[in-house]
Design a protein around this nucleic acid. Structure first.
Lengths: 118, 118
DNA sequence: CCGACTGATTGATACGCGTCAATGTATGGT
DNA sequence: ACCATACATTGACGCGTATCAATCAGTCGG
């Protein structure tokens, strides 16, 4: 009976509370949270992964494609994709044997907003 | 005769070549460079530092203020400020005994541009 | 000159993380 | 049922770095 295939659970589906570098002194708690997202972004391999996924626009990209294109071992790709999903920069969609990934535009928009110095 | 006090030398005063997640597949070299800047940003302590400096708008902030406000040891603050200057997110200006720091708006604008998914 | 102050540097410690080989877990074809 | 395929997980290794105490290097006041 094909149990509903468990939507992936990321931290919080709710959009992160909006913070900016200009909105008053940054509380340690907020600093930790935003730094977490930025850490996921601050890796050359993950940037290349994101670049390839983002380049597909609306289409989702399957992990096997990334392994071929980027010339990086499959476990490493899987590791990076997981981190990017955990912080909400990517979403994962399982289709049969294949895992498809696509970018979360809102997450990037929030980061851009955070970096806005007015 | 007050020798000109040697403007701080960061990597390159030239604005970084413009890259975006959408402008074709990201080359490993560019990925390294941008990840370097993001790594400097991806630390809660440095985010708090930046928040305080950015909050001063045009005025530069002296390091001693940061030590007081953030309740972090002076060597640690100095270490973080150095990293932020190295990647070009802050500039340092020495005035007598005091070192004043201010944000580089262009650097933040470039990051925002990089994160723009259209 | 000397002492007080600002801030950078050094050294040590601890922890996180990127990477891959090996293995595990589903899924689908035959 | 069986085997190949697509990913995920585990374990291990190495390297970078955040942190602070101690020390060093300039700079001003007296």
């Amino acid at each position: 009976m094909t149990a509903a295939p468990e939507a992936i659970k990321v931290s919080t589906e709710a959009p992160q509370k909006c913070c900016s570098l200009l909105s008053g002194p940054l509380q340690p708690h907020d600093a930790e949270r935003i730094a977490g997202t930025l850490k996921a972004l601050a890796d050359p391999t993950r940037l290349r992964v994101l670049s390839h996924v983002a380049a597909q626009g609306c289409d989702a990209v399957c992990a096997c494609d990334l392994v071929e294109v980027l010339d990086i071992s499959q476990p490493t790709i899987s590791h990076h994709l997981k981190k990017l999903v955990e912080v909400g920069l990517l979403v994962r969609e399982q289709r049969g044997r294949w895992a498809h990934y696509s970018v979360v535009r809102e997450a990037f928009a929030e980061l851009r907003n955070f970096l806005d110095l007015g």
